[in-house]
Design a protein around this nucleic acid. Structure first.
Lengths: 178, 178
DNA sequence: TTTACTGTACCGTCTGGACGGTCTTGTCAA
DNA sequence: TTGACAAGACCGTCCAGACGGTACAGTAAA
């Protein structure tokens, strides 16, 4: 019953995110993650030989999950819907949750800013993709940046907007996106 | 020449920002700041008795400077210009500089997320003030969030937009702002 | 004399990581 | 079927180093 076939991996990743959110991004230590995941420190280091590998895995899983959600929304949505509209809706629903959910990003950036490189690359590619599919560059810029702002607010746990205002914003963006 | 009438204070604050930017937010140690500022560790702790006080001062100075710049632009600008337009222009020119300039924020958040409380409060008040002066709530929401996105990109040193695109974005926002 | 430091020595705590050991599971020849 | 053995998954301990902070003696300008 002890050997859980590397499902420990996911438990550890989830535990790391929890620790960062609840104890603050500066308190993301291997000990804290291990105890939270119900795993010994040795076991943690077995799955992720260094803290850097843990961070890297956190980033990669995050990106993989986002891409998955985007593709899912793309195939499930109405066929006439633009990618930009899908991105707006997906991001808005992501930011609906009160929990920042990704404050481990601050831990990663404190550890080494280079951990964010894959995220920057991903975002740049997404932007290029949107540019290719969106006729109106001005509309794209405004919408993309506004969504970036929404994500930023969520990340910093800075809930300035009321629910009504968020809804109004999203509908405005969707209208701009056309 | 040694006793510089607490102008050391400013040197230390600037040094802290430099260290955070150049060595990464996780390397903001008291030793590093002291040596960068050309001050002994004892001297640093004379000016800021604890690291928390240093962080707090960093936040307060940042906010004070932003408010000063906003008021300056307000009185200097054309009298018909809306506060929103001024805010957009000021933020855009802030984000023009390639250097993040405020990556000490990540150090602060790693130390203790509560250090950001004054910033959140400031932003909320600014938003309320803008709501009071802007007739079109939808336009305000879009512009405010897009600027937030621009600031976020600058902070994360994620230069996805070209200079042309940034210009186009700003002019679009100013048109939306009316 | 006071103010504003410098410089050094030091303490306690925490952290990442190395290491050796342990239990469990799977494999495969006899 | 069974016994030997290899590999995988994990535990617990230990340690060097870095960090924040304290204490204190010295110094030089105002």
């Amino acid at each position: 019953m002890r050997a859980q076939r590397s499902n420990s991996r996911d438990k550890i990743l989830a535990a790391a995110a929890d620790v960062a959110r609840e104890s603050g991004p500066g308190s993301l230590s291997l000990d804290a993650v291990a105890s939270r995941a119900g795993v010994s420190k040795g076991g943690l280091l077995y799955n992720f030989p260094t803290k850097a590998k843990l961070m890297q895995a956190l980033v990669e899983d995050y990106l993989r999950e986002f891409e998955r959600a985007l593709e899912a929304a793309r195939t499930a949505g109405a066929s006439g819907e633009s990618l930009l509209a899908i991105y707006i809706k997906l991001s808005a629903s992501d930011c609906e949750e009160p929990q920042p959910s990704a404050s481990w990003i601050f831990s990663a950036i404190a550890e080494d800013p280079d951990f964010l490189t894959p995220i920057k690359l991903f975002k740049r590619q997404l932007f290029e993709r949107l540019k290719g599919e969106t006729p109106d560059l001005k509309a794209l810029l405004v919408c993309f940046l506004a969504i970036e702002g929404l994500r930023s607010m969520n990340l910093f746990d800075s809930d300035i907007l009321s629910a009504d205002e968020r809804g109004l914003l999203v509908s405005s963006l969707l209208r701009i996106a056309g």
